[in-house]
Measured scan of single mutants.
Amino acid sequence: DESNKPILLPNESQSFERSVQLLDQIPSYDTHKIAVLYVGEGQSNSELAILSNEHGSYRYTEFLTGLGRLIELKDCQPDKVYLGGLDVCGEDGQFTYCWHDDIMQAVFHIATLMPTKDVDKHRCDKKRHLGNDFVSIVYNDSGEDFKLGTIKGQFNFVHVIVTPLDYECNLVSLQCRKDMEGLVDTSVAKIVSDRNLPFVARQMALHANMASQVHHSRSNPTDIYPSKWIARLRHIKRLRQRICEEAAYSNPSLPLVHPPSHSKAPAQTPAEPTPGYEVGQRKRLISSVEDFTE
């Protein structure tokens, strides 16, 4: 099969070098950035008060330690540790928490760990991170309901609301924008112990962030949302095809390698009803078989 044979790379090609550099910018793992907010007593309706908090309760602090690993920003190499735009020179604080497994990295933009500057009256330095995160974990210690939209931002799609209760338990629920209701189930609340709260809140936030990324990708319907490693695979396959075309153009005697095509017509299947918005969006999480067989 010609399409699977190794090909020689061009010795000097600026377009090839640019493509390789672009490939280096696509990590081999999925990345997520999640905002974390603490809401104190009497702050449920005040964005400024929430963003001005420099610490929270003892249970909130224990919750943070379970979310991930504490890292010092100045020691991080952005090409190895995903920071979601946090500055490593102290502009966004000294520490944050991050978490990773074999296929993804997540960083938490924690408002109480970011510096509260006197010259920044409206807390814009914090909002440029927190307001651009799709998902926020809100530790609501106010005793009042927290409403979506209290923290203004164009991309605040989903809130994971943590409400501490007695007996070391917590109520965990989801809020989302109306255009996200087909992807996020907000109907079920959970009672979770303090011990298990970081794991549950983190998983709910990661799932909500993946759904938000799919939702946000609708602005470019021709580019369905893939995982990062599938995006790398697609980029490599496009690069291979372009090299083959350039080689055939410079030397017409060489065969032009095309991806294999299936001449056999697909079997006719009964027509199915058109899937609704929710089903269609969830299918976009699934990769096409052509990603692996071309």
Rank of each mutant, 00 (worst) to 15 (best):
N4G: 14
K5E: 15
P6D: 14
I7W: 07
L8V: 12
L9M: 15
N11C: 08
E12G: 08
S13H: 11
Q14T: 10
E17P: 03
L23V: 07
D24R: 04
P27H: 04
P27Y: 05
T31K: 13
A35S: 07
L37H: 02
V39M: 02
E41P: 11
Q43G: 01
L48W: 10
I50L: 02
Y58C: 06
T61V: 07
E62D: 08
F63W: 01
F63Q: 00
L64A: 02
L67M: 02
L67T: 00
G68M: 04
I71H: 07
L73K: 13
L73I: 13
C76E: 08
C76D: 14
Q77A: 13
P78K: 12
P78T: 11
G85Y: 03
D87Y: 02
V88R: 06
V88I: 06
V88L: 12
C89Q: 12
D92T: 09
G93R: 14
Q94M: 15
Y97E: 03
W99T: 02
D102V: 05
M104P: 02
V107E: 14
F108R: 01
F108L: 01
H109I: 04
I110W: 01
I110Y: 02
A111S: 09
A111R: 03
A111N: 03
T112R: 02
M114P: 03
T116D: 06
T116H: 08
D118G: 10
D120Q: 10
D120L: 09
R123G: 13
C124V: 11
R128Q: 11
L130W: 03
G131M: 15
D133T: 09
D133V: 08
I137R: 00
V138C: 02
D141T: 01
D141K: 01
D141R: 00
G143T: 03
E144G: 04
D145S: 07
D145T: 08
G149E: 14
T150W: 04
I151Q: 03
I151H: 02
I151A: 02
K152E: 15
G153Y: 04
F157Y: 15
V162L: 05
P164F: 00
P164N: 01
P164I: 00
L165W: 03
D166A: 04
D166R: 01
Y167C: 05
N170S: 12
N170M: 02
L171I: 08
V172E: 00
L174I: 05
Q175V: 07
M180V: 15
V184S: 03
V184I: 07
V184Q: 03
D185C: 04
T186F: 04
T186L: 06
V192N: 00
S193M: 02
S193K: 02
V200Y: 04
Q203F: 04
M204F: 02
M204S: 04
L206F: 07
N209D: 10
H215R: 11
H216Q: 08
H216Y: 15
S219F: 08
N220M: 06
Y225M: 13
Y225R: 09
P226H: 04
W229Y: 05
Q241T: 10
Q241K: 14
Q241L: 06
Q241I: 04
R242N: 15
E245H: 08
A248W: 08
Y249E: 07
P259G: 14
S261R: 10
P266M: 11
Q268P: 11
T269P: 13
T269F: 09
T269G: 10
E272G: 13
P275V: 08
R284T: 12
L285Y: 08
L285H: 11
I286E: 14
V289A: 13
T293P: 12
